[in-house]
Amino acid sequence: MTELHFSRHLNAEAQAQASSLDHWDQHYEQLSNGRFEGLSEDLHLGFVQVFHEHANQTLLQNGQGRPGTVSFAVTEVAGSGSWYCGHEIEGRRLIALSPQREFELLAGAGMDLMAVCIDTAPLAELAATLFGADFELRLPEPAPVRQPGFDESELSKLLGAALSLARGNLAQLEQPAARHMLSLSLADAVLHCIGCDAFETRLPPGTVARRHIVALAREYMRAHADEAISVPDLCAATGVSRRALQYAFEDVVHLSPVTYLRVMRLNQVRRELQTHRCDSIGDVAARWGFWHLSRFAADYSRLFGELPSATRARWLAESG
Rank of each mutant, 00 (worst) to 15 (best):
16 A>P: 02
44 H>P: 02
229 I>D: 06
231 V>P: 06
136 E>K: 09
320 G>A: 11
4 L>P: 00
57 Q>P: 00
92 R>N: 01
55 A>Q: 03
97 L>W: 06
320 G>V: 06
13 E>I: 00
251 D>E: 15
307 L>T: 14
237 A>S: 09
3 E>G: 01
235 C>K: 11
125 E>H: 05
267 N>S: 15
44 H>N: 07
263 V>K: 06
141 E>A: 15
46 G>D: 04
149 G>K: 04
11 N>Y: 03
143 A>E: 02
30 Q>D: 10
114 M>H: 00
243 R>S: 11
50 V>W: 00
100 Q>A: 15
318 E>H: 09
201 T>F: 08
237 A>T: 11
149 G>T: 10
215 A>P: 03
153 S>G: 12
297 A>H: 05
243 R>Q: 11
4 L>D: 13
26 Q>Y: 13
123 L>T: 01
219 E>F: 08
249 F>N: 10
138 R>D: 13
211 R>E: 09
114 M>L: 13
43 L>T: 05
41 E>T: 10
85 C>L: 12
75 T>P: 11
208 V>C: 14
228 A>R: 08
55 A>S: 14
170 L>M: 15
16 A>H: 01
220 Y>E: 00
181 M>F: 14
218 R>Y: 07
61 Q>L: 15
107 A>E: 05
280 S>I: 07
133 A>F: 04
161 A>N: 12
102 E>M: 15
277 R>H: 02
34 G>T: 14
250 E>Y: 01
79 G>Q: 09
211 R>T: 08
81 G>M: 07
46 G>N: 09
311 T>P: 01
156 S>P: 00
240 V>Q: 10
56 N>G: 03
228 A>F: 03
319 S>D: 07
7 S>E: 07
213 I>V: 15
157 K>P: 02
76 E>T: 15
109 A>T: 13
272 E>V: 03
139 L>I: 13
188 D>E: 04
96 A>E: 06
50 V>Q: 02
98 S>C: 14
197 D>S: 13
209 A>C: 11
318 E>K: 02
103 F>P: 04
57 Q>S: 11
183 S>V: 14
49 Q>H: 12
83 W>S: 01
69 T>G: 05
170 L>W: 09
100 Q>C: 03
111 M>S: 13
184 L>A: 10
199 F>C: 03
291 W>I: 13
292 H>P: 04
270 R>A: 06
92 R>W: 00
100 Q>S: 12
146 R>C: 11
271 R>Q: 12
298 A>Y: 05
37 E>R: 12
227 E>F: 04
181 M>K: 10
76 E>K: 14
93 R>P: 06
17 Q>L: 14
165 L>T: 13
42 D>F: 10
220 Y>W: 14
60 L>H: 09
308 P>D: 02
135 F>M: 10
180 H>V: 08
275 T>D: 09
193 C>K: 02
174 E>M: 14
